[in-house]
Write a protein that binds this DNA or RNA. Sequence first.
DNA 1: CAGGCGTGGAA
DNA 2: TTTCCAAGCCT
Length: 350
Amino acid sequence: MTPPPPDSALLLAWYDRHSRVLPWRGTAGRPDPYRVWLSEVMLQQTTVAAVGPRYTRFLARFPDVQALAAAGWEEVAEEWAGLGYYARARNLHAGAKALVAQGFPSTEAGLRAIPGIGPYTAAAVAAIAFDAPVVPADGNVERVAARIFRVETPLPAAKKRLAELAQGWMAQPAARARPGDFAQALFDLGATICTPRNPACALCPWRQGCAAHAAGVQAELPRKTPKAARPTRHGVHFLLADPAGRILVRRRPAKGLLGGMLEVPGTPWRAAPWDPADALAHAPLPGLAWQPLPGEARHGFTHFELRMTLLAARLPGDAEPPGFAWMEPASARAAMPSVMHRLLDLAKSG
DNA sequence: CAGGCGTGGAA
DNA sequence: TTTCCAAGCCT
């Protein structure tokens, strides 16, 4: 037996009773496109729990797109520090300048031209902020579609097919009447009912139309092609304090890993462990009495595992080497990505 | 297409 | 402790 097609009205009725209360969901009326855009970018590969307080804080500092466009990169970087995927912050800043110059596009195609807005975010902003009849296909929607239609092809190969199947729901009048709510209903369904592990099918408004549930294979879908193991890399970092207790910091190159963010100076991160003499060649100043601190800081990146050790020294004078800056430890920490917190914590305990 | 690109919480 | 993964994008 082929299950009947899932009814968008059933999902919307469920959403009207069970929608999550989230900071970026207004109470009534059409949401502010800037806020929708900001929330969607922050939520890229980032949990709702992590985004919540950061979204509110970001909005307090940059209340509208003009404020964000007028800000300097250092402010934006400080505000984004700890959220990860820092290209998002660089694109958001560049995008704000473009939006102030040209206005806020209301179509998928127009949004797609803004840096950092890909197929998903363009569809999400178009649907939520402008009620465009599109179904944004994020991880939640892909999972729901894979189960409803029992798609056995593994991700990411199945992405295109799953997006097409999800878009098919927009043919129903109930979905078409409320595209933004329909998209968010799918997110909530995926996040609270149709979860990756142990889906709560008994509570699902779409259970009757779910091919995976009918076959009892919901927990196995969507299939995913396995990822490669993460290699280990090693680094040695240099914590230098001046007589006032400030620490020496450096801004990383604008692109690439942690691009544009502040760091504690160090060696490159490489596969082979460093021996002390080689590492010392990368010290910010020559001829200092570096003291190794006990312990090792570890941090997991998406594609490698990092192990760092820390050398500490105190500078007698007040020289500032070119390309570096002195900062109060608390200010430096607040503006640094989490991987640098691990190093600073090493100094605290040592 | 595959890989680079962060982080913290859950199992 | 390790693995997985969360409203992806860019090259």
